[in-house]
Design a protein around this nucleic acid. Structure first.
Lengths: 111, 111
DNA sequence: AACGTTTATCGTAATATTGCAATATTAAAC
DNA sequence: GTTTAATATTGCAATATTACGATAAACGTT
């Protein structure tokens, strides 16, 4: 097998899984870190920043873009990548909700 | 290849990547959802809840446990799984920090 | 001790991911 | 239009993941 049974789960579950999966690689976390550090999104510098070959970085960027975690704007012959704020806000929301649920459960357990 | 170059990235980057990777599958998100919904962590019920065979569920549980997202306590012949609160708190922190960084960058951009 | 229940492990097939060299594409610069 | 640069795509090898049937291991019950 190896094919994930996506259709058996809810939209929200698949959405979180897709986002988490995209973050689930240290190179992609490093790219996100870099984009958070740098104000102007100097695209090609990511290749210099990471210990990976250019095609590999390009592939990781593509996956991050597909997941909606970053945006890429063409600017002349180079491409300007930057964080997609909305998606990260959504992720923060996901995990805040989980923490809230955990807190609620704790309160019930005490009473 | 196919082997991730873990050693080239920081501890934090690898930590977040490992946690995200573990969450990066809808079945595992569904397991987390279920454990959040149910107070007592009735282990074997997860198998009934999910559209997956028992060995598959067992494997997903193992991965969640390895990542530190859930805990499993032996209770007679069954095992009691539950959310590991500390790890989810850590995750919430990660994404709060990212959102803070995004906000800071925005403020600088305006000035 | 034999049996049922619950969970884990093994083995294996199907598929996905990772990484990179080679090459293609795109657009500015000359 | 040719050169130069920045990125993307292709093709491929190595490895990882996903899923499950078969089986094992652990424990309580009778």
């Amino acid at each position: 097998m190896g094919a994930t049974k996506t259709d058996h789960f809810t939209g929200k579950q698949n959405e979180l899984a897709t986002l988490a999966k995209a973050i689930g690689h240290p190179a992609r976390v490093a790219i996100i870190d870099y984009l958070l550090k740098v104000n102007s999104c100097i695209c090609g510098d990511i290749v210099n920043e990471l210990p990976l070959a250019q095609p590999t970085v390009s592939q990781h960027l593509k996956e991050l873009k597909n997941a909606g975690l970053i945006k890429g704007e063409i600017e002349g012959n180079s491409i300007c990548y930057c964080i997609d704020e909305k998606t990260f806000a959504k992720l923060q929301n996901f995990f805040s909700n989980i923490s809230t649920k955990i807190e609620k459960k704790k309160r019930i357990a005490v009473n």
